[in-house]
Design a binder for these strands. Structure first.
Length: 482
RNA sequence: GCUCCGGUAGUCUAGUCCGGCCAAGGAUAUCGGCCUUUCGAGCCGACGACCCGGGUUCAAAUCCCGGCCGGAGCACCA
């Protein structure tokens, strides 16, 4: 009840200029699976398309063959599905080269673009000085001829580049004439092979596709602001109606590993267990740790799309996740750094522990017969003074005597009198290790019944929420958060 | 250097467009209390912010000017 109230309260602001349905897009490049940072644009777009109705396109931007992880073509849709993002239509830019070429030719005919054979470095230098290259203002026929030569493969990598004219005196040097097509002969594209040698650059293909898809609204990071300005030249030259652009702020994620090149390298070198290594900021890693997509969604809704730069807060994300997971997670005991103790003075004990303190999930029951041995956490046990009365939660009270506990009844009122409560694990408990987000590993024992919760997120009492797996026949937990 | 964007508590956010109801609301974190056979959840309380300086005004977080600080872009990456 309470939760609902808050979730309803925090909503995204309305999108400006909505007339009927909206058409929006997600435009990831297939360099790896999706990470937390990218989930923001996916969620926000999805939220708006669901709110107003319309179409959400997934446009895979694979126009740089040097930076493609072939598996990512499948991983991205999987990640989106996990996130609960409803994609209506998927397009892949490498299917659309012919479309880009058509517009490229038109622009040349209009005299709004040129092909320069001036080396990159010199071209850049001239641009910064606001000067044209010696071939910029050649007649369109000449440039069309060069274009055909580019397509025919008459130039080698770097020998010619297709540039969109803007304004060489634009006060912002980032906006002046920008490259739109380059020649790549030295790489094979994972989808189209060697079919093309002239590759569009991001600003060109994006502008064309945004128009072709008749987008109404484009959400993108503030880092794309200058790209938006650049793309506007294309829209203006062709007289196209522009979508509404919204640039949201930069998110810094301290201590979070997101860079695909770093991850790829780490996996290769065996430092990471894979794309879902719990130390990573990929969605796969979060899923592994039992972070729910709804928590991620709520987090980004909470943040909204302001243009302020923000710092990502794991605490806030965990809080949303805890809210979702707490009422669902079964409770178990996990004893790390285990120490064996024997309970004396009783020959039969029955532990009946509820799976959940408030939800009705039933009980787990363990029966013990003399000799009764259990595992406790050594660092907890060792700081308890000899002779103290303490309680083994849901089992019994004992008085500590060295490495043994003298049975002291089952009267709960001792807690009120200040007896410390510790948790334990049956002596026939199962080996388990828990992997923390920083890579640390806790080894110990857990209750045999945890096997029934493989695949679920559970709470190890006084330890935290973990998702449980079975790897090579052994229980492994991935720590989510406290 | 040039161009652009932005600055509300530790973090995120509401309010800023259309100045007063904001001596600034919510979440999270932290601390304390209650409750509880978990150091979880719940309940109660505390802590804590309008970048600075001028100006306009009866009145400014909100409008204007200047400064300071932070960020982004200036790739034949996306």
């Amino acid at each position: 009840m309470k939760k609902k109230k808050r979730e309803e309260k925090k909503e995204l602001e309305d999108l400006p200029n909505v007339h009927g349905e909206v058409r929006m897009r997600l435009a990831p490049s297939p360099s790896g699976p999706m990470h937390l940072g990218q989930s923001r644009m996916a969620i926000l777009n999805d939220e708006y398309v669901k709110r107003y109705g319309g179409i959400l396109f997934l446009r895979i931007e694979d126009t740089n063959p040097h930076n493609i992880l072939p598996e990512a073509y499948d991983m991205i849709p999987e990640d989106l599905e996990w996130l609960g993002v409803k994609v209506h239509k998927t397009i892949i830019q490498s299917d659309r080269f012919e479309i880009y070429y058509i517009y490229a030719r038109k622009l040349l005919e209009m005299g709004k673009a040129y092909i320069t054979t001036v080396p990159a470095e010199e071209w850049r230098k001239l641009k910064n000085e606001g000067k044209p290259t010696n071939d910029r203002d050649l007649p369109p026929e000449e440039h069309l001829e060069r274009w055909d030569k580019m397509l025919n493969g008459d130039y080698d990598d770097g020998e010619a580049v297709y540039v969109v004219k803007t304004d060489l005196n634009h006060p912002n040097p980032a906006i002046r004439d920008w490259a739109a097509f380059r020649i790549i002969k030295d790489a094979e594209h994972p989808r189209v092979g060697n079919k093309y040698i002239v590759y569009p650059l991001m600003n060109f293909s994006v502008a064309i596709d945004d128009y072709e898809l008749r987008l109404t609204h484009v959400l993108r990071g503030k880092d794309h602001l200058n790209n938006t300005y650049r793309q506007m030249y294309i829209y203006n030259y062709f007289g196209w109606k522009k979508p509404v652009y919204i640039h949201y702020g930069w998110v810094t994620m301290k201590d979070t590993i997101l860079k695909t090149s770093t991850i790829k390298q780490g996996i290769k070198e065996g430092r990471y267990r894979g794309w879902d290594d719990p130390r990573l900021g990929t969605l796969r890693a979060l899923a592994k740790r039992g972070i729910r997509p709804e928590a991620i969604r709520q987090y980004w809704i909470d943040v909204g799309l302001k243009s302020v730069d923000i710092e990502f807060s794991w605490d806030n994300l965990y809080a949303y996740n805890r809210e979702i997971v707490d009422p669902l997670a079964k409770r178990y005991f996990f004893v790390w750094n285990p120490k064996e103790i024997e309970i004396k003075g009783v020959d039969k004990l029955v532990a009946q522990a509820p799976y959940h303190p408030s939800e009705d999930m039933g009980y787990r029951t363990y029966e013990f017969h003399d000799p009764i041995k259990v595992w406790v956490v050594d660092d907890e046990w060792s700081i308890i003074p000899d002779g103290s009365l303490l309680r083994l939660k849901d089992l019994c009270n004992i008085v500590k005597k060295g490495n043994e506990g003298e049975y002291a009844g089952n009267d709960l009122s001792v807690i009120k009198k200040g007896a410390k409560i510790i948790h334990w694990c049956p002596h026939n408990g199962l080996d388990m290790k828990i992997i923390m987000p920083d890579g640390k590993i806790y080894g110990g024992f857990t209750e045999p019944l945890v096997e029934k919760s493989v695949g679920e997120t559970v709470q190890f009492e006084r330890f935290g929420f973990c998702r449980v797996y079975k790897e090579n026949g052994k229980l492994v937990g991935y720590f989510g958060h406290r």
